[in-house]
Write a protein that binds this DNA or RNA. Sequence first.
DNA 1: CAGTTCGTTCAGTAATTACTGAAAACACAG
DNA 2: CTGTGTTTTCAGTAATTACTGAACGAACTG
Lengths: 198, 198
Amino acid sequence: MDIPPLARTFVLHFGEMGSRWGVNRTVGQIYALLFLSNRPLNAEDITGALGLSRSNISMGLKELESWRLVRLQHIPGDRREYFSTPEDVWEIVRILAEERRKREVDPTLSLLRSVLMETPDSPEERHAQERMRELHGLIELLTGWADDVQKLETERLVQLMKLGSRITRLLDMKDRLTLLPGGKGRRRKAANTEDSGE
Amino acid sequence: MDIPPLARTFVLHFGEMGSRWGVNRTVGQIYALLFLSNRPLNAEDITGALGLSRSNISMGLKELESWRLVRLQHIPGDRREYFSTPEDVWEIVRILAEERRKREVDPTLSLLRSVLMETPDSPEERHAQERMRELHGLIELLTGWADDVQKLETERLVQLMKLGSRITRLLDMKDRLTLLPGGKGRRRKAANTEDSGE
DNA sequence: CAGTTCGTTCAGTAATTACTGAAAACACAG
DNA sequence: CTGTGTTTTCAGTAATTACTGAACGAACTG
């Protein structure tokens, strides 16, 4: 099976991009192919399309399964295994975020935590530990936020993204409201707070 | 120069992590070392600490410079080049976001755009193009948002992150306010809107 | 200008990673 | 159980990437 020209560019590009990411060219290509396909593909389809060995494809698919980026399914009356990607692109984003976190962030966090328990023996070590503490705090904040965001329905998430930095207007509004307990008519003070803020 | 034990774990870990990311072990280690250091280091310091060849370090530093992750500076009365990382961890996050985007996202976007201009020749191609359109839209939304967020001062960003998914409460509030032009006292209707929303 | 110190380049080599083909394992059908 | 179509494993090899040492070049010093 030949890949239509329009799709080929994309597949090859994804193959190269894969390398920048933790996966090899083959894995990138397989994923791109499945992403574009209008039906699930079996290993032979993929072998034919990409011109790579059967065993290579098998390994690639395994890796993609371990990333939960492809799904295995069966077609009635056919013994072969068919693969496809999730339809919803947001679903893909969520999965990627989770997996990358599991593989890259969590190990780092746990290493940081254990090093932060130790007692520094010198000014250098003390400074190093301080830096690690900063990094730890940063990662905690980012992942905490990511956890939170993961919980939102897609609708909401899109709404938030579109709002972008205009979200700060809402924050300003909130500040104004919450800084004035009971709303006792001290509006002017609140307006000042905003000005001095920047 | 020997790396204190407390820092060594971190440096080695970063070296390994580097590989998952687009950089090699050496580059990861150099970066970690500089990140932890309480003073700028020159190439020889780094060579000594990591036990790698001078030329390797030179190449690593060049790569880190191309990522804008380290800064070159000079110390009065010393001809050698000294390197350090930005102090502020948020600054680092911003730089990383920009660079990764430049290297990974932008090329993909431009490829997608050009492929989306073409006319599909078959149902398969049409479907493939449709998928690419979805992906394109997603990336545009994400990067647009990222651009927006980049503009915020760190203070604001932290505030937003801490708020996390509670941000939706603000959105609800905003909806309630904007859906009721002039605030003509139809509060009860607004409250209902929220309930049916989830 | 010769000598010194530093940084860069690059060809060669080491180390790692990717890929293949053959064999094994598996799953089912008759 | 045997045969067939399928996926997996793995040892060997190819390809790629990382690293080194030696040579070179640039910038300064006396």
